[in-house]
Design a protein around this nucleic acid. Sequence first.
DNA 1: AATGAATGAGGCTTCATTCAT
DNA 2: TATGAATGAAGCCTCATTCAT
Lengths: 192, 192, 192, 192
Amino acid sequence: MHTFGRRGYRVASMEEIAGLAGVSKPLVYLYLNSKEELFTACVRREARALAASVRDSVDPRLPADRQLWAGLTAFFTHTAENPDGWAVLHRQARTHGEPFALEVAAMRDEMVARVASLIGAAAREAGTGRTPELAARDMTGLAQALVGAAESLAGWRHEDGTVSARDAAATLMNFAWVGLGELLRGERWTAR
Amino acid sequence: MHTFGRRGYRVASMEEIAGLAGVSKPLVYLYLNSKEELFTACVRREARALAASVRDSVDPRLPADRQLWAGLTAFFTHTAENPDGWAVLHRQARTHGEPFALEVAAMRDEMVARVASLIGAAAREAGTGRTPELAARDMTGLAQALVGAAESLAGWRHEDGTVSARDAAATLMNFAWVGLGELLRGERWTAR
Amino acid sequence: MHTFGRRGYRVASMEEIAGLAGVSKPLVYLYLNSKEELFTACVRREARALAASVRDSVDPRLPADRQLWAGLTAFFTHTAENPDGWAVLHRQARTHGEPFALEVAAMRDEMVARVASLIGAAAREAGTGRTPELAARDMTGLAQALVGAAESLAGWRHEDGTVSARDAAATLMNFAWVGLGELLRGERWTAR
Amino acid sequence: MHTFGRRGYRVASMEEIAGLAGVSKPLVYLYLNSKEELFTACVRREARALAASVRDSVDPRLPADRQLWAGLTAFFTHTAENPDGWAVLHRQARTHGEPFALEVAAMRDEMVARVASLIGAAAREAGTGRTPELAARDMTGLAQALVGAAESLAGWRHEDGTVSARDAAATLMNFAWVGLGELLRGERWTAR
DNA sequence: AATGAATGAGGCTTCATTCAT
DNA sequence: TATGAATGAAGCCTCATTCAT
């Protein structure tokens, strides 16, 4: 039913959705009781699929930067392979009312938290004792930035088309892990 | 007419828009001929206002990082002061049809280009000769990431409410300019 | 204000009418109190103009067929010179509600009556005593037929464009005065 | 749906049409997609019904005057039995926009052509060699006159109410076939 | 288990008409 | 005298949703 992704929540009519799914309208109502529930189900499914893709790609025994690299690659791969699902999550669900927005916000917050804890882990790994003051909120802020950057790059890839998932992930790793400052001084983060 | 920001393009009825504006429906049609034109006008106005805020805050004679800092601060300030306008640009316009999406995409692309050229300038400033290979597309990718991170932080601020524009800008400068790697080693970017 | 003729009663908006007349809407309402009255005035004026054209062209001292010829010629001339007026009378007024239809029906009935009395006069002129039974209603029927034929030919002229008023009148005189039967046997009615 | 005939195209609201038809508005849109299509369908149906009535009543093996007589009788009968349909064709369709007007014009033109060819046939039947100059356009003009006369008499019948279809047809046959001139000299065309 | 047929509610838009000046 | 500004009322159309089978 990813008609939603292509047409948008409001424009996609139940007529069209049912038609493209090859069934009749009342049947849709038999299984999912309203357009709202139908959309909620779509959103939830896509959210879970994306979260699972990312989660499953990450080996928690690896160092933090390698975990982040793996997660980003999975994220870019998944969004590229499921453009409609990504559109539903990123565009439609957040625009059409609280119920859907909350659904996707939960998933996103979880991702942010995961990234934040990854940053915390990295801080401990790098722990020279010089960064005790990196508070929880700072880490959340950084994680928000990183997630937003990833979302933006996903959209960019979608339009450009010539950027591979690894390219996008590398760009972001360089951006985030090395930092523009170091980057400009010639530093590079490498996958291995 | 920022009813659009709070209610969404589809849900906001002309009745409601006119009512909240204190006038009658036909009067709205007298000035702006259709719901689409009305929304386009809103989008355009908000896009220009945001672009102007950011542009006016930046002194092109400063070094690149200071320009970025100024622009980000202005961005976070403007979006916080115009939450409805920001919602129109970031949520509504990109979700409800090409005409609007193109309008806002143009503005965003311009911002991305500006950031990319800023990165290019920074590269020349830092120019140790060790970074000749930072191609145009790399810079665009980095700029996309930075802009996406800023958008994400703007949303985060909007929900959190306790983060000042300077905090958000500082978070992003640290994230982007210093890099998580350096950051975790205790480096900090400071506004001065 | 013959916008009515070209656009139709319903489609012609007061805005358009006033605009083309070079005045403002309230001014129109000052002189003629409503769209209905405005249209009634138009209809009445056109009806009178047409009736006057026809009436003035007829010399009651002539024999009946010459009177008919003169009236028809005037009719075809007037309708060709005032196509909008004719459209108002023949198309618009009869289609858009009783008030207007009655207005034009009165004029038309008067014309029919005039033609009927002309036929009566002709009967008396030709009076060989062999046609006592040509009742009033017969004459009205014949007059209705003649008037309808004239209306139809007026429309035909309007579309064709190459038929002169005299041609149309001659066609109708031949048709009516000589009769198809006689016509086909070679008879012709001539204007003199 | 001959609400159109009684109320007129513009005045008849879809609400009213659906209501009088005993169904709901959306149902009307399910079958006929817009007011315009609905009206077009009405016009076309009425046009075909009238054309069929007339055509079926005419036996092409009969002499021309008998064919005309049959056709006229059918015409007057049909229009009297379907006053709304006739109103739609003669009043509404020709007044409310090209699409409808063209539809009915096609049917009328066909009738005119048929009558014209009938006149041509009559000319050949009566052919004494004295009427070679009855050109195609003359015949079209005569046919236009005859059809207009018939339309007018149909309206007259509609108002008067006491004139039978045969009376009207007879009036017109006398008018057209015998001619007023001969008529006044006592000639009559008889149905047999 | 599945659907053709039907509708209540609501949105966009237009227009004749009137104030206030 | 003349008008810019404003609106109540109404029409066309769509869609999520439900019966009756």
